Amino acid sequence: MKTGFGLVLAGVMAVLAAGQAVAEDTGFYVGGSVGWAYLAGEGTDRIEDQDFDFSDDDVGYKVYAGWQILPFLGIEGGYVDFGEVEDTTPLTRTRIATDGWDAFVVGNLPLGFIDLFAKVGVIAFDSDLDFNGTNISFDDSESGTEGAYGVGAALELGSFAVRGEWEYFDIDGLDDLSLWSVGLTYQF
């Protein structure tokens, strides 16, 4: 009987301590991540009406800042660079470099020292295309604002957190533009 009371008391203390830790998980944060950017796409040569497609990956990175308004809700924005992807065949070479500024609403599920999160938002992107074929070469650029979303997890280590995530950017003409990344976040 005495042991049962001790277990209940220990459980109540743990819940109160966790509640205090969650209450401290609000405020401003900054971070940076590096990872693997993947891009696939297709298009048509505007002059000779030839179709081309490509898929490749490169090192990508991002820097971001955010505000954890409540333990379960935040906002975040930053700069993301997807690197330069290139696809070469015997007759063509396609190179695309894409970067942009993004903004997200972030839903957070705090589970002690591990947080799971999902986010939805937009990216204002710039994409530069360089196409070289056997008979034709051209450069093109496109910019716009499109939707984005992602999921991830963060392992809290005091004011720091190690964060891993996957993000998808829904840009017309660029299929499967995504970024898998791991980084470090500091919360003030």
Rank of each mutant, 00 (worst) to 15 (best):
Pro90Gly: 10
Asp140Ala: 15
Leu129Thr: 11
Phe160Glu: 08
Thr26Glu: 03
Trp166Ile: 11
Ala161Glu: 13
Glu86Phe: 00
Ile96Leu: 12
Arg163Val: 11
Gly173Leu: 06
Ala118Cys: 11
Ser178Ala: 12
Asp115Ser: 14
Ala154Trp: 06
Thr98Met: 02
Leu7Cys: 04
Gly133Glu: 11
Val85Asn: 01
Trp180Pro: 00
Asp56Lys: 01
Trp67Ala: 05
Ala23Trp: 02
Ile69Glu: 01
Glu156His: 15
Gly147Met: 05
Asp53Ile: 02
Asp172Met: 09
Ala14Leu: 12
Asp45Pro: 07
Gly183Thr: 07
Phe131Ser: 08
Gln20Ser: 12
Gly66Tyr: 05
Glu76His: 10
Leu70Lys: 01
Thr3His: 14
Leu7Pro: 00
Leu116Gln: 06
Val182Glu: 09
Thr3Pro: 01
Val12Leu: 13
Asp170Met: 01
Asp102Glu: 13
Ser181Gly: 04
Trp67Gln: 03
Arg95Gln: 11
Gly173Lys: 09
Pro90Ala: 04
Glu42Phe: 05
Phe52Tyr: 15
Leu177Thr: 14
Asp176Leu: 02
Leu155Trp: 10
Gly158His: 06
Asp175His: 11
Tyr38His: 15
Ala10Ile: 00
Tyr149Ala: 12
Ala14His: 03
Trp67Met: 13
Ala14Val: 04
Thr145Trp: 04
Thr145His: 08
Val106Tyr: 02
Gly164Lys: 07
Val122Phe: 14
Asp81Glu: 03
Gly77Met: 10
Phe138Ser: 10
Asn135Ile: 15
Leu111Cys: 07
Tyr186His: 13
Asp57Asn: 15
Phe113Asn: 14
Gly133Pro: 13
Gln20Asn: 13
Glu84Leu: 00
Tyr61Arg: 06
Ala153Cys: 03
Leu177Lys: 07
Ser159Ile: 01
Thr44His: 03
Gly121Arg: 10
Leu184His: 13
Val22Ala: 14
Phe5Pro: 03
Asp57Val: 02
Asp172Cys: 11
Gly41Asp: 07
Ile114Gly: 07
Leu16Thr: 12
Leu157Ser: 08
Leu111Lys: 09
Thr185Asn: 13
Gly152Thr: 02
Asp139Tyr: 11
Asp102Trp: 13
Ala37His: 05
Tyr64Gly: 06
Arg163Leu: 08
Gly83Tyr: 00
Ser55Ala: 14
Gly41Lys: 07
Ala154Glu: 08
